[in-house]
Design a protein around this nucleic acid. Structure first.
Length: 510
RNA sequence: GCCUCCAUAGCUCAGCUGGUUAGAGCGCCGGACUGUUAAUCCGUAGGUCCAAGGUUCAAGUCCUUGUGGGGGCGCCA
């Protein structure tokens, strides 16, 4: 690629003294003879200094007209400076303005805005540091997934987005008009993936998926990107090995390639460094026992841990409240403005934290009740996943689920047809289900029986049944939610930040 | 779909049991100062208090309905 200017990310390999960069003003500070610009060019961030001494009075006056998000090209001397983010600073010799931006609505500190305002302004919110970092991580997650599968001999396939029927019969689908016939936007490509796996052996899909449920939660989108590998001659244990291998590979790639981004996101990366031993694999029946506090893991009791968390949250609230009172007393005592401001900021931060803690104090008792009274045979709720994963340090794989709460195509556990060989990967820190998969039923008679039991129309599955008529083999696969993985790795409290333009219940624009 | 909280300046919020002319911080604009890091200091401008109806001598504040939003639950990747 041949370009005339330099990208900030390439500064470390840049040899000449002078550079030309093209980009935008992220933030700007004026002093009498210097202007300091937080400059961004898409590839990174760098401080640009414009001095009256260097530029001359006339050009310096021009530079004073720059505003946040104005666009410009700058040529100048590249100076290594450890104090600056990225380790460099540019002393400008000349500059050329493309456009002066007027009244950019988003503040330099995006956390001062409400979520509604930011999402309404998503098209320009994407420019903020935090969103820049998230999108960079997302990019590495995507490339990491491709790399893992490609390196292991998988073939990428695209499954259709229009389907003539609801595949699993359970979820609500978006209906569209397909030349006069009703058609639905795909909620999964799995059945097509199975067909392709019988042709290519190892395949994976990577594409958009649509769910029309009116889910209004931080972990649901109406349009999201799903990765669905399907492996011929793989049983569910091998399936779990693939899940673990892929997740480890992607997470370590992000840790390696996105150090700056994760730092910008203030991510505690120790939580993403898993021990060498395999991710715990626990059967559903044992997960239920752990949840009810009847089974301990490494001396950890799930219910007791929640009670500890609750007590801890309460103690922290008291501690913060005391600190706020103390700081308020300091302010009332009459202090210099700088000190007053400093204390006011601390108080605001503490109050925000208290708000979150109070949310926990409200929620945890419900979670404990829900976990204690969990009914064997039911599906886990969001809070149950949080309580369950709390006793582990790594992601957990829960397998061998009750047949009645899982899809028709899952293979029965040998000698125990009430359970099926499904597996869910639950991420730690309350992020919940990231992967759902299973070994598929291979016996056509069992499959036909299951289709009947699930009250699904057999005729639309005839092509799928053909896969069992001609060389049926054991095979497995899973679905990975890209945005859920990004959310967990970046430690985001909502899915709306994991994708450039979120499409979810109540949000279609911009 | 259910539970719960909320809607006040461009943005984030305060406004107590109803009581004269509705406040702050940030941003904008003007000025001062300054190798600055969310710069700092001084000043100006900026409001149909979500909508409709009701209670009252008096409503940003209380009641009803509607609309929009946050958080939790369900459905799941």
């Amino acid at each position: 690629m041949d370009v005339q200017h330099t990208y900030i990310r390439n500064f470390s390999s840049h040899t000449a003294d002078t550079v030309t960069v093209k980009g935008w003003v992220s933030n700007i500070r004026f002093s009498k003879t210097n202007i300091f610009i937080d400059f961004r060019d898409g590839s990174g961030f760098c401080q640009v200094v414009m001095s009256q001494d260097v530029l001359g009075e006339e050009r310096f006056e021009e530079a004073k007209k720059l505003t946040r998000e104005s666009s410009l090209a700058v040529s100048g001397t590249l100076i290594a400076d450890e104090r600056q983010l990225g380790g460099y600073e540019i002393q400008a010799n000349s500059f050329c303005v493309y456009h002066i931006a007027v009244d950019f609505p988003i503040k330099a500190n995006e956390t001062e805005h409400g979520v509604r305002f930011l999402e309404d302004n998503r098209h320009i919110w994407l420019r903020s540091r935090r969103q820049w970092a998230i999108m960079r991580v997302r990019n590495q997650v995507i490339m990491g997934i491709h790399a893992y599968f490609q390196d292991n001999g998988f073939v990428q396939m695209d499954s259709p987005l229009f389907t003539g029927n609801a595949a699993e019969g359970s979820t609500t689908l978006f209906e569209t008009d397909f030349f006069g016939e009703p058609a639905y936007l795909a909620q999964t490509g799995q059945l097509y993936g199975e067909a392709m796996a019988m042709a290519q052996g190892l395949i994976y899909t990577f594409g958009p998926t649509f769910r029309a449920e009116k889910s209004n939660t931080p972990r649901h989108l109406a349009e999201f990107w799903m990765i669905e590998p399907e492996m011929a001659f793989f049983d569910n244990d091998m399936n779990m090995s693939v899940i673990e291998g892929m997740v480890r590979s992607v997470v370590s790639r992000v840790l390696e390639k996105c150090e700056t981004e994760l730092k910008m996101l203030d991510r505690d990366t120790s939580k993403l460094q898993f021990a060498a031993e395999p991710f715990p694999r626990i059967k559903y029946v044992d997960a239920v026992k752990i949840l009810r506090g009847e089974l301990e893991i490494n001396g950890k009791n799930a219910i007791a841990l929640q009670e500890e968390d609750l007590a801890h949250a309460k103690a922290l609230i008291e501690q913060h409240t005391a600190e706020i009172a103390e700081r308020e007393a300091t302010i009332k005592g009459g202090v210099k403005k700088g000190i007053r401001k400093f204390n006011e900021q601390k108080i605001a931060a503490l109050q925000a934290e208290i708000k979150e803690l109070e949310e926990q104090v409200r929620n945890i008792p419900n979670w404990i009740e829900s976990a204690k009274n969990f009914v064997d045979g039911e599906d886990f709720g969001g809070s149950d996943e949080t309580v369950l994963t709390r006793v582990f340090d790594a992601p957990v794989m829960v397998h061998d689920w009750p047949a009645k709460i899982k899809a028709f195509y899952m293979k029965e556990v040998d000698g125990n047809p009430d359970y099926v060989k499904g597996v869910d990967l639950l991420a730690p820190e309350g992020f919940g289900e990231v992967v759902g998969g299973s070994e598929r039923e291979t016996d056509i008679d069992v499959l036909v029986k299951k289709i009947e039991e699930h009250k699904l129309p057999q005729d639309v599955f005839e092509w799928y049944l053909d896969l069992r008529r001609f060389g049926s083999v054991p095979h497995s696969g899973f679905g990975l939610g890209l945005e859920r993985l990004v959310r967990w790795i970046c430690n985001l409290n909502h899915m709306r930040e994991t994708i450039p333009f979120a499409r979810r219940y109540g949000r279609l624009n911009p």
